[in-house]
C-alpha cells in the first residue's frame, strides 16, 4: 500500500462512501446488529413471561422457591445462591473488559489470555451453578409441567427462559475458548489486531445484561 493512498484528501462527511460511517469495522457492526436482533428474541420470551405472570392471581414467592445453597443442608438463604451466580457473571464481565483492554491498548498476548481465561472460568462457574439450581428444583418437584411452589407457569417459564439464557452463556463460553486458543497461538498478533476479542466481548456483555432482566423477572418481581 503506497503512502499516498493512506491520506484521503478531504473527509467532509463520513457518509460519503469509502468510509465506515460509525468508524468501526463491518465485523463489529455486524455483532451490534446481531445483538439487536437477539434482544428481540429475549424480548419475545420476557413479554410472554409478563403476559402470563400478570394474568395470574397468585404467583410463587421467589424467596420461597430460591432459598437453598449447595452444601448447606438446613440453612435457608433466600436468594443467596442466585446473588452469588449474578456476582460471578458480573465479575466475568469485568475480566472480559480487562481482556479487551489489554488486547486493544497493549496487544499483550499473555495478559489477554489470562483475563480471557478468567472470564471462561466465570462462565463455567455460572453454568455449573445453574445446573445445580435446576437439579435442585427438579428434585423438589418443579418441572415443565408441575410446580409445588404455586402456579405451574412459573416453572415452565423459569426453565425455558433461564435455559435460553444459559444456552447463550454456554455458546459464549465455547466461543471464548476458541478465541483463547487463537490468542495463545498468536493469531491476533499476526493479524495486527485484537478486534476479535472485542467482538466476543460485546457478546459476553450482552449476555450479562440480559441476565439482569431475567434475574429481575424471576427472582425479584
Amino acid at each position: 500500500m503506497t503512502e499516498s493512498s493512506l491520506t484521503m484528501s478531504v473527509k467532509p462527511n463520513v457518509w460519503q462512501g469509502g468510509f465506515s460511517p460509525f468508524r468501526i469495522s463491518w465485523g463489529k457492526l455486524m455483532m451490534w446488529y446481531f445483538l439487536v436482533g437477539d434482544s428481540f428474541s429475549f424480548g419475545a420470551f420476557l413479554i410472554t413471561y409478563g403476559a402470563l405472570r400478570f394474568s395470574y392471581e397468585s404467583w410463587p414467592l421467589p424467596t420461597e422457591v430460591f432459598k437453598s445453597f449447595p452444601f448447606l443442608e438446613n440453612v435457608e438463604v433466600p436468594l443467596g445462591f442466585v446473588s452469588f451466580m449474578t456476582f460471578t457473571l458480573i465479575m466475568s464481565s469485568v475480566t472480559m473488559v480487562l481482556a479487551v483492554h489489554y488486547g486493544n491498548a497493549e496487544r499483550n498476548r499473555y495478559k489477554v489470555a489470562k483475563w480471557l481465561a478468567w472470564t471462561i472460568v466465570g462462565g463455567l462457574i455460572f453454568l455449573s451453578s445453574q445446573a445445580w439450581e435446576w437439579t435442585h428444583l427438579i428434585t423438589h418437584g418443579m418441572t415443565m409441567k408441575h410446580n409445588p411452589f404455586g402456579a405451574p407457569a412459573f416453572g415452565w417459564l423459569f426453565f425455558t427462559i433461564t435455559g435460553f439464557h444459559g444456552f447463550h452463556v454456554f455458546t459464549g463460553v465455547i466461543i471464548n475458548i476458541i478465541i483463547l486458543i487463537n490468542v495463545l497461538r498468536g493469531v491476533y498478533d499476526r493479524r495486527g489486531s485484537y478486534e476479535m476479542v472485542e467482538k466476543v466481548g460485546l457478546y459476553w456483555h450482552f449476555v450479562d445484561l440480559v441476565w439482569v432482566f431475567v434475574f429481575m423477572a424471576f427472582y425479584l418481581l
Binding site: 462527511n13 457518509w15 460519503q16 462512501g17 469509502g18 465506515s20 460511517p21 460509525f22 469495522s25 463491518w26 457492526l29 455486524m30 446488529y33
Partner: peptide, 13 residues
C-alpha cells in the same frame, strides 16, 4: 445491512 453501511465505494453517499 453492514455491507450497505460500511462498504459503499467512494462517493456513494
Amino acid at each position: 445491512i453492514t455491507t450497505v453501511l460500511n462498504l459503499r465505494t467512494k462517493g456513494m453517499s
